[in-house]
Design a protein around this nucleic acid. Structure first.
Lengths: 330, 330
DNA sequence: CTGAAAGCGCTAACAA
DNA sequence: TTGTTAGCGCTTTCAG
């Protein structure tokens, strides 16, 4: 029942631990093919697995990347984690995902846990643009850290994000092109860089007195609240831009129950292009993040020398995905 | 930039490594409070983090539990992983989640990776009742393994699952109580124990010639296919039981686009009670798994002596959650 | 109550 | 090309 060690494999193959290691770790070519065969055979026969802790301790590397996301309850972050996992696995590594429960204290704790040689690098989608900074900065002194999808001030490291301003432009141009000019924004979570940037981009384009409904969090419930508020107080609105898909889902459902047709009377757009959008009736127009390219870039930065991770924001171009929630015939 | 070690802390506090360890690992009470204070102060001052690999190598334990789920694209498994993570964290541990991409080969690979001292125990939601067995059995010889939510034959270990037969009873009784008697089942993934059990329970209750639509996988797309098939070929049906929420979502959306009112003409039920159900119009009646209790039980079994994990299936009672998709007024 | 020393399983100099 | 050996950072007997 006790797990076989490298020593057992070496003994079974009649070689030294060093040779067995060279074969099994694939670290050196210079091994007699016959011996290599015997080692591999012995390993298979004994059901040998390299002890991960021992290897990590010896080599100082774990083959594992960690990512801390604000909340897995938001399907967008599940998609994001998946894109990352894909990339990491393709490079022969492993991704471990932590959930910060939308709380900077939990976030700091999760980052702490991942430190201490558990990971070779850390990706963080910071909960807050302000409050997440210190924990990230502290981590960045111990291990390579790259921010993903959101930035945080004082983080001391680079962020790979979406160009939210360009995304907002895409949405507004699209809606205006359909003749919708009385546009409201439903925004949430101003504490996050994405929430703040989307709001800023909207008021920047439409003027500071444009209609905005501000909500605390990126949840469907918040979307419903927004729906109620718009149905009651903003009769003149003919389009609503939501700062996240989950908001749009709650909003559309509430509008429809209030007998306000979408897109008939109000066109609605989401943000993040999560998969669920296609299933709704109507499917919702949204913004797609180039997650694969962003993941690739983030992982490259993680492996680059520290000086290439100086604090700054890299922005990727968004893509508009048009669906029925902004159909023209209305 | 090089991380501080226990030795550095000990030196800074003016004690031996042993004492510093006793304080920081919290493993022994018998340390002079003054020395303990000095050690903690030094650790904080230096930003010391225990090296996880070294501790794991020395103690033979990692504080980490692994779980392999069939696919995180299915929101039910995200919820399930979350319930598990909650429990594990409450016990001071960490959960790492792996995605098997609905493929037994990937599943076996993921299980392999987690072996080799990476985890103290392994939870598996097996992709297939037949094909997943061998990989699980092999793993169970190396580390404690408990199956979760699904079982696999020849696994050699215990499974903590839902009582799918009771769940089907609940659904059918509910629908029949509403006067719906021409009930069809939309089932998927017969290779999984849950898929197979739900189908068997349905035909057991309604007869082998009851209407069933069988699909390959638990996806919304499959649900849409089912919707089309029912709209075209099964005019007499007045209720549809879906073997998973994702199926119900696709089904309802397709029925509605075919101008078949839900629940007006066809009542629909889901299975798994994922959060998205409340957002749809109409919200969908479903079966709730007692995930917290199941998670608790699974973790207890993981820590029990091996003989308590003998191959068998433990079943937990389901709960019916009624929503508008099975409203009576129709 | 504290310290000295051994050793978890592995890899990588270094020597042969 | 192969083996010997040291040691990664930590915890834990065992003495004191």
């Amino acid at each position: 029942m006790t797990a076989p060690r490298l020593l057992d494999v070496a003994a079974a193959a009649g070689v030294s631990r060093a040779t067995a290691s060279r074969v099994l770790a694939g670290t050196q070519r210079n091994v007699d093919p016959e011996l290599a065969r015997r080692v591999e055979e012995a390993a298979r026969h004994l059901g040998y697995r390299t002890n991960h802790s021992a290897r990590a301790l010896r080599t100082g590397t774990t083959g594992t990347i960690g990512v801390v996301v604000p909340s897995l309850a938001n399907p967008y972050f599940v998609q994001l984690a998946d894109a990352l996992a894909q990339q990491v696995r393709a490079a022969g590594g492993q991704l471990v995902v932590s959930d910060a429960a939308n709380d900077t204290a939990v976030e700091a704790e999760q980052i702490e846990t991942l430190l201490g040689g558990r990971v070779d690098g850390l990706l963080v989608v910071p909960v807050s643009a302000g409050a997440s900074g210190p924990a990230v900065r502290a981590a960045a002194q111990r291990t390579p850290v790259v921010l993903f999808d959101r930035w945080a001030t004082g983080s001391g490291t680079v962020a790979v994000t979406l160009d939210n301003t360009a995304a907002m432009r895409l949405l507004l141009d699209h809606l205006e092109g359909l003749g919708r000019h009385r546009i409201a924004l439903v925004a949430a979570d101003q504490a996050s860089s994405s929430g703040a940037e989307r709001l800023a981009a909207f008021t920047g384009a439409r003027g500071a007195d444009a209609t905005t409904v501000l909500l605390p969090s990126f949840t469907t419930d918040a979307g419903r609240t927004a729906g109620r508020r718009i149905a009651e107080r903003h009769a003149g609105i003919d389009a609503v831009v939501c700062g996240a898909d989950v908001l749009a889902v709650g909003l559309v459902s509430t509008l429809q129950r209030s007998a306000i047709p979408v897109p008939g009377r109000i066109a609605v757009t989401g943000f993040d292009d999560t998969e669920m959008l296609e299933l709704l009736d109507p499917p919702i127009t949204s913004i797609r993040h180039p997650l694969t390219a962003m993941a690739e870039r983030a992982l490259t930065l993680l492996q680059s020398p520290a000086r290439e991770r100086s604090e700054r924001v890299e922005r990727f171009a968004p893509q508009l995905v048009v669906r029925s929630s902004t159909d023209a015939n209305a």
